[in-house]
């Protein structure tokens, strides 16, 4: 089976994101830093899990490994049963495109592209037909409430709107898992709440396994589960407060 067939099967299975016994170290000797220390975590389809922790706790490393950007020293990451740690960088890049959607800190949009083009780019990378890509991008922008601003560039959008475009872009390839990096870092409390609520709604609507890392506990509580991370370990697993 090639990478495309594998990822198509994984999407169909919608088996969620499963990380088992992940270990990741940087440097060596006295300089060695343990970024991930035997981390195991499963995120089901349609579930939003928030990982909260201070800077340097290992949150970003967890996202890098979960997103097939970094190979762990040991352990495994599977999405819908597909091992994301195997194969060369090119294959992992293709699987990343097909199976994982990223929402980056500060939205990370291309300054030269309009909101619509930010989404179309994902379709182009995947080789999807132009017409289908455009209609899907417009539908997703409508879903996040930005259909009227499809022609605007990032500089013409507010912080919250930029983050909504980032979420819509992450959904373009119909991912099985959504990895979200500090989505509210540049937003006021109300906008932050709106964004995480939108993430939760989209997670359920598209039946995606969403893993969100944040240092903002007030928005983390909007997730289905909140896990605290400290020194590379998951030290507590809590259900969120009743809503």
């Amino acid at each position: 089976m090639n990478a495309k067939e594998i990822t198509t099967d994984a999407k169909t299975a919608r088996g969620g994101l499963c990380m088992e016994h992940l270990c990741l170290r940087y440097g060596d000797g006295d300089e060695e830093i343990v970024a991930l220390d035997d981390v195991s975590l499963a995120v089901g389809a349609g579930e939003l899990v928030a990982v909260a922790g201070a800077s340097g706790s290992g949150k970003s490393s967890l996202l890098a490994v979960a997103g097939a950007m970094r190979r762990p020293d040991s352990g495994s990451v599977t999405i819908g049963g597909v091992d994301m740690t195997e194969g060369p960088a090119k294959k992992r890049g293709a699987m990343r495109h097909d199976l994982i959607g990223f929402v980056f800190q500060g939205s990370s949009l291309f300054a030269s592209l309009t909101a619509l083009e930010q989404l179309e780019l994902v379709g182009r990378i995947g080789g999807a037909p132009r017409a289908a890509t455009r209609s899907k991008a417009l539908a997703l922008l409508d879903e996040v409430g930005l259909a009227a601003k499809a022609g605007r560039r990032p500089g013409q959008l507010s912080g919250g709107e930029r983050q909504r475009v980032g979420i819509a872009r992450a959904l373009m390839a119909e991912p099985a898992a959504l990895l979200v990096d500090e989505p509210t870092s540049a937003l006021d409390h109300q906008r932050a709440t709106d964004i995480v609520t939108l993430l939760r709604d989209e997670t359920r609507r598209h039946q995606i396994a969403t893993l969100m890392v944040t240092h903002d506990l007030s928005v983390a509580r909007l997730a289905d589960r909140v896990i605290e991370m400290r020194d590379g370990r998951l030290i507590a697993t809590n259900a969120p407060p009743a809503r």
Binding site: A64, M69, R70, Q105
Partner: peptide, 11 residues
């Protein structure tokens, strides 16, 4: 260029 730089202050 490593794609990991997209993760901001990633490890």
């Amino acid at each position: 260029i490593d794609p990991i730089i997209a993760l901001g202050a990633a490890a």
